[in-house]
Design a binder for these strands. Sequence first.
DNA 1: TATATTTGCTTAATCGATTAAGCAAATATA
DNA 2: TATATTTGCTTAATCGATTAAGCAAATATA
Lengths: 347, 347
Amino acid sequence: MANKKRTTLKDIANELNISPAAVSKAMHNDSRISEKTKKEVARVAKALNYQPNHIASALRKGKSNLVGVIVPRTNSNFFSSVVEQIEAVLDKAGYNIIITQSNESFKKECKNIDTLLYTQVDGIIASMANETVDLSHYEKIKLKGIPLIVFDRGENDLNVDYIGIDDYDSSHMIVEHLVEQGCKRIAHIGGYRRTRIFKNRILGFIDAIEKNNLPQDDELIIESDLTLNDGRLGMEQLLKLKNRPDAVYVSNDYAALGALQVLQEHNIKVPYDIALVGFSNEPFSSLVTPTITTVNQHSGEIGKRAAETFLKRINQDDWKPKLTKTILKSELIVRASSNRILKDLTL
Amino acid sequence: MANKKRTTLKDIANELNISPAAVSKAMHNDSRISEKTKKEVARVAKALNYQPNHIASALRKGKSNLVGVIVPRTNSNFFSSVVEQIEAVLDKAGYNIIITQSNESFKKECKNIDTLLYTQVDGIIASMANETVDLSHYEKIKLKGIPLIVFDRGENDLNVDYIGIDDYDSSHMIVEHLVEQGCKRIAHIGGYRRTRIFKNRILGFIDAIEKNNLPQDDELIIESDLTLNDGRLGMEQLLKLKNRPDAVYVSNDYAALGALQVLQEHNIKVPYDIALVGFSNEPFSSLVTPTITTVNQHSGEIGKRAAETFLKRINQDDWKPKLTKTILKSELIVRASSNRILKDLTL
DNA sequence: TATATTTGCTTAATCGATTAAGCAAATATA
DNA sequence: TATATTTGCTTAATCGATTAAGCAAATATA
């Protein structure tokens, strides 16, 4: 029933008594092939249900039209949105993507890189695992001479193209917003400084506090892993202070939610007693009550830019990898948890 | 710097003055190659940094070791978990996956199938778009003679392997649970019956109600698109009834959250006045207050089984596709929104 | 010692598509 | 009319790895 034998260029060539080379050229609309032959080829190709063998052409052309994508996990709103846009952009350019995830493990990430190189991808778009410190695997990609694009994590480490958002500036936006809402003593529950994005947010926070002449107090900055429970613990700690803050900026929505739960348990009015801001625009941040003000990282835009950068590099013959940063501005999404002024803000 | 020319089997062969064929066999540990030669080959391969060209071997062997995955969207907790496990299982067996998403569009789905076939995947694991009615594109996969595994959606339509959960039984579990909590009048905000999974949930609900001798009332069953707002509207409608329900089973967590919001706005005590159950175990369901009782669809397990089924089929020479269903039991996760008995249930 | 088997390779073809080189016929130009 | 150019193909090699077939030397068996 099913035609076991697939149709090849040779079958079409035999049918028309021409050479396979002529068929190939006809398919690619070569100017040296007559219109008549092109039509005949098209007709027979259709009649025999010809499907080009991508692998054969990849071997011959030394180009697989596959792009490898490495993310810490796909099961995250941020990364899946990035991947979605990478796919959308590359699809239009005739590329397919192979998605792999490191599960934040250095070992798995190394394995992923080996697998992708082995599969002969034409380039790799990656966001590093938290664990990754040794970058020799990434150097392998560069040595192979295929484009490597890094996003979100790994900013300055690899001297390649990087796409991310401006964490330093995001902190400024948040502080300015809280000041506008009348907050005078702002605390920050952040991630650990060793991770660059969290370091940048802390630095941005400190500078913004100084710029606005607000109290700078070590007890107002807490570092943690930013789980929901870390948010709870951080908030408990802040509530114990003699001089409580009237606003808390939490570097992640999960921790912000934990903080919110503690505030509600203490019957503290949000945003009037204490205003709250999270980070990352996780889907639940608009679903809880009150809705949480947060920062949208433009994940789609990051994916789009990453894919476009890949396409640019693959079409540049003389490109030597060098550090080229694209830093996008993030967007503050003001919701109920920090909104003291506009009572009826929908969302 | 970077060795432009990649090392091939031929390079190793020249170095050792043997034939490429011998090198290939040595690499594959052929019993007809001496241990001495194998060691030499391994040594030189390492010295020259040999990386096998997967594409060449794929062409020769007629096997790409790629598996195509089609999901409605990756940006969903359910599908990304399924994909995660598919990847984990297939990776161990030496397969890579190419993930594509249909965005619930029939047209995009057709395009995805064409792309995957063109890329010479060894099989396809898919969950159908909502829009899809015409299945001729899927028939193309079957005609090509490669395994097709369907999950979650498309249960009986294609006569291939199917993995899903028992929606009918899930409704029974929910109703039994609510009865145990003392509920006597249970309503259902479901999806439209034209989608099989929602139909099965409605049928399960009706049968479970009958089995438990509870009131069967048309006004207690509402069909909708199950958005958050549909949940709100449905609950408003139920609250207007002369004879209000004391429990509501909503076929999706988003709609359940909408229903919860309405209940809270009306100062109705959950679960004591009205108990609430959702479906799908979306991440936020454990994060809102009160936490929402829901159904875990074992997305990881579905992915695992789908991948294992693929591996089974690819290794069966004589397999002709036929309808083979694997129906997993779902798991009820009892949380605060329906828990009248155990006051201190954590979660 | 004569024949059979095993070992350790080589040779040559193959998987399909692509492309550089080239050739004959048709057409254009001087 | 003689030469140059263009058109429309063909020929043959190639991308690397794999494998069926086969051969000579080494070893085993009768």
